[in-house]
Amino acid sequence: MSDFHQPGQLLARGVCRHLSGYGFVAVEEFSPTRGLRIDVMGLGPKGELWVIECKSSRADFQSDTKWQGYLEWGDRYFWAVDMDFPTDLLPANTGLMIADQYGAEIMRMGPETKLPAARRRVLTHKFATYAARRLQALRDPQL
């Protein structure tokens, strides 16, 4: 990837690659509701939804005051950080991925908290719509 990508975007790329190995599809910068933007949302082969927040530095993590609001939007929650990140800062009751621009590894599985069926339906539809619009924008930028 070129230099114009931010460190968090490079982590997101590696996370998306890793998730595909589990049969997931993923979108970056997904907004489940007004005011929230999830770095990576993964949709699994059994309909599970994972939320992954990419943090490129201690300052990036410490300035994030909204992360607990993301917990209710997925079945599992993960942090994705690089190898140099001080992982002892991250809450122990969340998932952890070590990532770079080429891939990732799950170091700690996030605890599962199943979404209510109605929220899952809404999020899955929103995920599909968002992904389709992004694909269409690539295929037809004039649209």
Rank of each mutant, 00 (worst) to 15 (best):
M1I: 10
M1S: 14
S2T: 13
D3K: 09
F4K: 05
F4N: 09
H5R: 06
Q6K: 15
Q6W: 09
Q9N: 10
Q9M: 05
L10G: 06
L10R: 15
A12C: 13
R13P: 00
V15W: 08
C16R: 15
R17S: 12
R17Y: 09
R17Q: 08
L19C: 04
G21W: 07
Y22W: 15
G23L: 04
F24V: 02
V25W: 01
V25T: 13
A26S: 15
E28V: 03
E29N: 11
S31F: 08
S31E: 15
P32L: 11
T33L: 00
T33W: 05
R34Q: 10
G35S: 07
R37A: 04
R37M: 03
I38L: 14
L43R: 15
L43A: 09
P45V: 04
K46S: 14
K46T: 14
E48R: 03
L49P: 06
L49K: 13
E53T: 10
C54M: 05
C54V: 05
C54F: 13
C54A: 14
K55I: 01
K55A: 02
S56H: 10
S56M: 02
S57G: 13
A59E: 15
A59W: 07
D60E: 08
Q62R: 15
S63Y: 01
D64F: 06
D64M: 05
Q68P: 06
Q68R: 15
G69H: 11
Y70M: 06
Y77A: 11
Y77H: 14
Y77K: 14
A80P: 13
A80F: 06
A80N: 10
F85H: 09
T87N: 00
D88V: 04
L90Y: 04
L90V: 08
L90G: 01
L90M: 00
P91M: 08
A92V: 13
A92Q: 15
N93H: 13
L96G: 03
M97C: 12
M97E: 07
A99S: 14
Y102L: 06
Y102R: 14
Y102I: 00
G103M: 02
A104D: 08
I106A: 02
R108A: 08
M109S: 01
E112L: 12
T113Y: 01
K114R: 10
K114T: 04
L115K: 01
L115Y: 00
P116I: 12
A118L: 06
A118S: 02
R119T: 15
V122F: 01
V122K: 11
L123C: 03
H125L: 05
K126Q: 13
K126T: 14
F127K: 04
T129Y: 02
T129K: 07
A132K: 10
A132F: 04
A132T: 10
A132I: 00
R133L: 10
R133C: 07
R134T: 05
Q136N: 06
A137H: 12
R139Y: 03
P141M: 03
P141F: 02
Q142T: 13
Q142F: 10
L143N: 07
L143P: 01
